[in-house]
Design a protein around this nucleic acid. Structure first.
Length: 486
RNA sequence: GGCGCUGUAGCCAAGUGGUAAGGCAGAGGUCUGCAAAACCUCCACCACCGGUUCGAGUCCGGUCAGCGCCUCCA
């Protein structure tokens, strides 16, 4: 499947056009994707996980359908202020003071924390992972281009984008250029020609730690400019897909487009936005304080189950997170893995006989899955296809199944559930040595229990099983002998 | 207030006008020493009220409820 020609029939919802459109990359067979990454000043929460997994699945789907994908996602390690206008500390600096660290130590700490979370969730590493602080010259250059073209102006060492000079401002979010931005502080509003103008560069006040030289004096870049500069640098003019959270649509993405296009650069051709993750019906967010960090969740739950939960709803739908939803995901996920493991357990000793009926059913479910993913990456329908596959596979497994059909089933699980949805990462904290020891011990215990059972000493047999149950090991008696799992 | 989205079974969640996918939980059955897993069967007046249509969860209008963005937020 990896050598197939790129699939021409992928449809995705483009926020810019407000509808589902056929996806046609600018260069046949290749896709350039940019995703707005985290600001690394605190631990990532489940909302970030939803975004990262959503776009990871999109990337994996494109790979599955034969595209070569360059996936760029940034790290925002410049602390931005509370809005364009505020003075005082930025978020990184505030955190640094709290933790008695340098701002860049904070950035580094939470960057690596983010990397760990993503690894656990089986999110593929980005092709390129640029940091904002490493691209100050690129940002300055873009700002200079904007000034040269008359779309930006400098005031007191700060540079603002001139919204009124760019009529297309608002095209992504569908906002009219009526009066907005009432909340901007007076002092800064006076610097702006229009309250909706946004900062490209801010002069650094005396206490501000993160500062760089620029043509306009010592300062730091505005929030939006980094993404325009870095996406263009690594993906080129008119790259294919730009993604991010729905809450970034305005003003962040709107500003990104305006900056890039007003400077004369063709920008992203398709815009994709994931919806929010909610808890108790409300958006999980740092400012609301109703968040659960990824690390917290992973200390309690299997990361693959977390991923399964996220993938069980569509990326453009709100995902409700609750303990009950999680329990449900756990049950469903186990159903899939049990079937896959049974298929793989049988494979080495399977007869050569062909089972065309099962093979055809497997192929039909593969079709359903791919069709669902082609239709704006409809993961819930794709997951349903995996369950359909599982029902047919389990039914067949009640008898003897030949190797060709088992291989077809295994490939379906591995390629679709594994490669595309990313659900079957080989996790486990126990090292290979531990696993070997555990396996040997379990063989001994189960053998002992079988002896009790054969002698009808069920009390003893159950005592062994109960003890194992207490430590989280489930024992199952099957026609072929006992099995265990944890 | 402006713009936008959503309301589908106890819970989660799909749904391209033609008598409601899937999962979890639940009920009954098969299998089993008992269990577990698996399999079979059962389980929805699609928020409400109108309208369009031969036919609407799906289109249009209205009502109610909730949510998001407009300020940092994935």
């Amino acid at each position: 499947m990896s050598a197939r020609t790129p699939d021409p029939d992928i449809f995705l919802y483009d926020t810019l056009q407000g509808r589902k459109v056929r996806f046609v990359p600018s260069t046949p067979g290749r896709v350039g994707m940019y995703l707005c990454g985290p600001t690394v000043y605190s631990d990532a929460h489940l909302g970030h996980a939803k975004k990262e997994v959503a776009f990871d699945v999109i990337r994996r789907t494109l790979l599955h359908f034969g595209y070569q994908v360059r996936y760029v996602t940034n790290v925002t390690d410049v602390g931005h202020l509370q809005g364009d206008a505020d003075e005082g500390e930025d978020k990184l600096q505030a955190r640094a003071r709290l933790e008695r660290l340098e701002p860049m130590e904070v950035a580094d700490k939470y960057f690596w924390s983010f990397v760990r979370d993503m690894d656990a969730l089986n999110v593929l590493k980005p092709s390129i992972n640029p940091r904002a602080t490493g691209h100050i010259p690129e940002q300055i250059k873009l700002i200079e281009e904007l000034i040269a073209r008359g779309h930006a102006y400098e005031v007191n060492g700060s540079v603002y984008f001139d919204v009124r000079s760019w009529p297309e401002y608002g095209k992504l979010s569908g906002r009219k250029l009526d009066e907005q931005a009432e909340g901007t502080r007076e002092a800064v509003r006076e610097e702006k020609r229009d309250p909706r103008d946004f900062a490209l560069w801010k002069r650094a006040e005396p206490g501000h730690l993160m500062r760089w030289d620029s043509p306009w004096g010592v300062g730091f870049p505005g929030w939006h400019i980094e993404c325009s500069a870095m996406s263009l640098k690594y993906l080129g003019e008119g790259f294919d897909i730009h993604g991010g959270g729905l809450d970034l649509q305005f003003p962040h993405h709107e500003a990104e487009i305006a900056q890039a296009e007003a400077a004369g650069h063709a920008f992203a051709r398709y815009w994709m936005h994931n919806n929010m993750l909610t808890i108790g019906g409300e958006k999980m967010s740092k400012s609301k304080g109703n968040f659960t960090t990824i690390a917290d969740v992973l200390s309690q739950h299997d990361p693959m189950v977390v991923r399964f939960l996220l993938v069980s709803s569509h990326y453009r739908s709100v995902t409700e997170f609750s303990e009950e939803a999680f329990q449900s995901a756990q049950g469903g996920y186990r159903r899939l893995t049990e079937a896959l493991h049974e298929v793989e357990r049988r494979l080495p000793t399977a007869p050569e006989r062909d089972d065309p009926a099962l093979r055809e059913k497997v192929a039909a479910h593969v079709q359903e899955f791919e069709q669902a993913m082609r239709d704006d990456f409809n993961t819930p329908r794709a997951v349903a296809a995996l369950f359909g596959l599982t029902t047919d596979v389990n039914a067949a497994l009640s008898g003897e199944v030949g190797r060709p059909a088992l291989e077809a089933a295994r490939d379906a699980y591995r390629q679709l559930g594994g490669n595309v949805l990313g659900l079957f990462a080989e996790g486990g904290t126990a090292g290979p040595d531990d696993r070997e020891v555990v396996s040997a011990l379990m063989d001994l215990v189960l053998e002992a229990r079988q002896n009790y059972r054969l002698q009808k000493q069920y009390a003893e047999a159950d005592r062994l099983r109960d003890t194992l149950t207490r430590v989280g090991v489930t024992v199952e008696d099957t026609k072929d002998g006992p099995r265990w799992r944890r």
